[in-house]
Amino acid sequence: MSKRLPTRRADLRLIGRTLRLVLSIPAYAGFAVLTAWGALTAFALSQNLTLTSDLIVGGSLPLADRLVLVVEQYPFVGTNYSALDGAALLLVVSLVGANLALVTYHLREHDLSAAGSGGSLLGVALGVLGAGCAACGSALLLGVLSLFGASGLVLLLPLGGLELSLLAVLALLLSTYWVADGMRGGEIQGCPVDIGR
Protein backbone atom coordinates (compact mmCIF):
# COMPACT_ATOMS: atom_id res chain seq x y z
CA MET A 1 0.00 0.00 0.00
CA SER A 2 1.40 3.43 -0.87
CA LYS A 3 1.73 5.74 2.12
CA ARG A 4 -0.12 8.96 1.30
CA LEU A 5 -0.06 11.92 3.63
CA PRO A 6 -3.39 13.22 4.94
CA THR A 7 -3.45 16.56 3.16
CA ARG A 8 -7.18 17.09 2.63
CA ARG A 9 -10.08 17.75 4.91
CA ALA A 10 -11.66 14.50 3.75
CA ASP A 11 -8.60 12.64 5.07
CA LEU A 12 -9.15 14.04 8.56
CA ARG A 13 -12.84 13.17 8.34
CA LEU A 14 -11.85 9.64 7.40
CA ILE A 15 -9.72 9.36 10.56
CA GLY A 16 -12.57 10.68 12.69
CA ARG A 17 -15.24 8.48 11.10
CA THR A 18 -13.15 5.30 11.31
CA LEU A 19 -12.23 5.92 14.94
CA ARG A 20 -15.84 6.73 15.82
CA LEU A 21 -17.11 3.55 14.17
CA VAL A 22 -14.50 1.29 15.79
CA LEU A 23 -14.77 2.88 19.23
CA SER A 24 -18.56 2.61 19.14
CA ILE A 25 -18.03 -1.13 19.63
CA PRO A 26 -17.85 -1.58 23.44
CA ALA A 27 -15.12 -4.22 23.33
CA TYR A 28 -12.82 -1.99 21.28
CA ALA A 29 -13.67 1.10 23.30
CA GLY A 30 -12.75 -0.82 26.46
CA PHE A 31 -9.57 -2.05 24.82
CA ALA A 32 -8.64 1.54 23.87
CA VAL A 33 -9.23 2.80 27.41
CA LEU A 34 -7.25 -0.05 29.00
CA THR A 35 -4.40 0.39 26.53
CA ALA A 36 -4.28 4.15 27.12
CA TRP A 37 -4.30 3.62 30.89
CA GLY A 38 -1.54 1.01 30.62
CA ALA A 39 0.53 3.33 28.44
CA LEU A 40 0.00 6.20 30.89
CA THR A 41 1.09 4.04 33.82
CA ALA A 42 4.15 2.79 31.96
CA PHE A 43 5.10 6.32 30.88
CA ALA A 44 4.62 7.75 34.36
CA LEU A 45 6.49 5.01 36.22
CA SER A 46 9.33 5.06 33.70
CA GLN A 47 10.25 8.48 35.08
CA ASN A 48 10.82 7.07 38.58
CA LEU A 49 12.33 3.63 38.15
CA THR A 50 14.08 3.53 41.53
CA LEU A 51 10.88 4.48 43.37
CA THR A 52 9.02 1.85 41.36
CA SER A 53 11.60 -0.78 42.16
CA ASP A 54 12.07 0.13 45.84
CA LEU A 55 8.56 0.86 47.05
CA ILE A 56 5.92 0.07 44.41
CA VAL A 57 7.13 -3.35 43.27
CA GLY A 58 9.55 -4.13 46.10
CA GLY A 59 9.69 -3.09 49.75
CA SER A 60 7.11 -3.74 52.43
CA LEU A 61 4.53 -0.98 52.01
CA PRO A 62 0.84 -1.90 52.32
CA LEU A 63 -1.02 -2.23 49.01
CA ALA A 64 -2.91 1.03 49.59
CA ASP A 65 0.37 2.95 49.90
CA ARG A 66 1.73 1.35 46.73
CA LEU A 67 -1.41 2.42 44.87
CA VAL A 68 -1.01 5.96 46.22
CA LEU A 69 2.53 6.03 44.85
CA VAL A 70 1.35 4.85 41.41
CA VAL A 71 -1.56 7.29 41.18
CA GLU A 72 0.58 10.20 42.37
CA GLN A 73 2.87 9.74 39.35
CA TYR A 74 0.01 10.52 36.92
CA PRO A 75 -0.27 14.01 35.42
CA PHE A 76 -2.83 16.30 37.09
CA VAL A 77 -3.05 13.92 40.10
CA GLY A 78 0.56 14.29 41.21
CA THR A 79 2.82 17.25 40.56
CA ASN A 80 5.51 15.75 38.32
CA TYR A 81 4.28 17.49 35.16
CA SER A 82 3.48 21.02 34.15
CA ALA A 83 -0.04 21.47 32.75
CA LEU A 84 1.36 21.56 29.20
CA ASP A 85 3.53 18.45 29.64
CA GLY A 86 0.65 16.64 31.36
CA ALA A 87 -1.81 17.53 28.60
CA ALA A 88 0.68 16.40 25.93
CA LEU A 89 1.18 13.10 27.75
CA LEU A 90 -2.58 12.50 28.04
CA LEU A 91 -3.00 13.30 24.34
CA VAL A 92 -0.24 10.84 23.41
CA VAL A 93 -1.65 7.98 25.50
CA SER A 94 -5.19 8.65 24.23
CA LEU A 95 -3.93 8.41 20.67
CA VAL A 96 -1.97 5.27 21.53
CA GLY A 97 -5.15 3.66 22.88
CA ALA A 98 -7.29 4.69 19.90
CA ASN A 99 -4.59 3.76 17.40
CA LEU A 100 -3.98 0.31 18.84
CA ALA A 101 -7.74 -0.34 19.00
CA LEU A 102 -7.94 0.52 15.31
CA VAL A 103 -4.95 -1.67 14.41
CA THR A 104 -6.43 -4.54 16.44
CA TYR A 105 -9.82 -4.17 14.76
CA HIS A 106 -8.13 -4.13 11.36
CA LEU A 107 -6.14 -7.28 12.16
CA ARG A 108 -9.03 -9.22 13.72
CA GLU A 109 -11.99 -8.24 11.62
CA HIS A 110 -10.36 -7.77 8.25
CA ASP A 111 -7.69 -10.42 8.71
CA LEU A 112 -5.17 -8.06 7.13
CA SER A 113 -1.65 -6.99 7.93
CA ALA A 114 -1.23 -4.09 10.31
CA ALA A 115 -0.68 -1.28 7.87
CA GLY A 116 0.60 1.73 9.73
CA SER A 117 1.70 -0.17 12.81
CA GLY A 118 5.24 1.12 12.23
CA GLY A 119 3.85 4.58 12.84
CA SER A 120 2.18 3.34 16.02
CA LEU A 121 5.45 2.00 17.34
CA LEU A 122 7.25 5.23 16.43
CA GLY A 123 4.58 7.27 18.20
CA VAL A 124 4.75 5.12 21.33
CA ALA A 125 8.56 5.32 21.35
CA LEU A 126 8.58 9.11 20.98
CA GLY A 127 5.88 9.43 23.62
CA VAL A 128 7.93 7.39 26.09
CA LEU A 129 11.07 9.37 25.37
CA GLY A 130 9.40 12.75 25.58
CA ALA A 131 7.26 12.15 28.64
CA GLY A 132 7.79 14.75 31.33
CA CYS A 133 10.11 17.71 31.44
CA ALA A 134 12.73 16.53 28.99
CA ALA A 135 15.00 19.48 29.75
CA CYS A 136 15.05 18.72 33.50
CA GLY A 137 15.60 15.08 32.80
CA SER A 138 13.25 12.60 31.23
CA ALA A 139 14.91 9.46 32.58
CA LEU A 140 14.60 7.40 29.42
CA LEU A 141 15.36 10.22 26.99
CA LEU A 142 18.55 11.18 28.81
CA GLY A 143 19.54 7.53 29.00
CA VAL A 144 19.16 7.10 25.25
CA LEU A 145 20.85 10.40 24.38
CA SER A 146 23.74 9.76 26.75
CA LEU A 147 24.53 6.62 24.76
CA PHE A 148 25.46 8.99 21.96
CA GLY A 149 27.08 11.57 24.22
CA ALA A 150 24.28 13.97 23.35
CA SER A 151 22.34 14.40 26.57
CA GLY A 152 22.67 18.20 26.32
CA LEU A 153 21.02 18.23 22.92
CA VAL A 154 17.49 18.49 24.28
CA LEU A 155 18.37 21.79 25.99
CA LEU A 156 18.80 23.36 22.56
CA LEU A 157 15.18 22.69 21.63
CA PRO A 158 13.03 25.80 22.04
CA LEU A 159 10.27 23.93 23.90
CA GLY A 160 12.72 22.05 26.14
CA GLY A 161 11.81 18.64 24.75
CA LEU A 162 8.05 19.01 24.39
CA GLU A 163 8.85 18.70 20.68
CA LEU A 164 9.17 14.94 21.18
CA SER A 165 5.62 14.67 22.45
CA LEU A 166 4.41 16.71 19.48
CA LEU A 167 6.32 14.41 17.12
CA ALA A 168 4.69 11.46 18.88
CA VAL A 169 1.25 12.99 18.26
CA LEU A 170 2.14 13.48 14.60
CA ALA A 171 3.41 9.90 14.21
CA LEU A 172 0.28 8.51 15.87
CA LEU A 173 -2.05 10.62 13.72
CA LEU A 174 -0.22 9.52 10.56
CA SER A 175 -0.36 5.90 11.67
CA THR A 176 -4.08 6.20 12.43
CA TYR A 177 -4.69 7.73 9.00
CA TRP A 178 -2.78 4.98 7.23
CA VAL A 179 -4.70 2.26 9.05
CA ALA A 180 -8.00 4.02 8.29
CA ASP A 181 -6.92 4.47 4.67
CA GLY A 182 -6.28 0.73 4.49
CA MET A 183 -9.85 0.11 5.68
CA ARG A 184 -11.45 2.12 2.84
CA GLY A 185 -14.09 0.17 1.00
CA GLY A 186 -14.85 -1.94 4.04
CA GLU A 187 -17.62 -1.71 6.58
CA ILE A 188 -17.70 -1.42 10.36
CA GLN A 189 -20.92 -2.67 11.92
CA GLY A 190 -22.62 -2.29 8.57
CA CYS A 191 -21.47 1.29 8.06
CA PRO A 192 -19.19 2.11 5.12
CA VAL A 193 -15.77 3.45 6.14
CA ASP A 194 -15.18 5.35 2.92
CA ILE A 195 -15.97 9.03 2.86
CA GLY A 196 -15.07 9.72 -0.74
CA ARG A 197 -11.76 10.64 -2.24
Binding site: Q47, D54, G78, N80
Partner: peptide
Protein backbone atom coordinates in the same frame (compact mmCIF):
# COMPACT_ATOMS: atom_id res chain seq x y z
CA UNK B 1 17.97 5.28 52.50
CA UNK B 2 14.45 4.22 51.45
CA UNK B 3 14.47 5.31 47.83
CA UNK B 4 15.22 8.18 45.51
CA UNK B 5 12.72 10.35 43.69
CA UNK B 6 13.01 11.96 40.26
CA UNK B 7 11.34 15.21 39.44
CA UNK B 8 8.82 17.40 41.20
CA UNK B 9 7.05 14.57 42.99
CA UNK B 10 3.96 15.35 45.05
CA UNK B 11 3.71 15.85 48.79
CA UNK B 12 1.78 12.56 49.04
CA UNK B 13 4.61 10.72 47.29
CA UNK B 14 7.18 12.06 49.75
CA UNK B 15 4.89 11.40 52.72
CA UNK B 16 4.42 7.79 51.63
CA UNK B 17 8.09 7.22 50.85
Amino acid sequence: LQTSLNGSVSTSTVETA
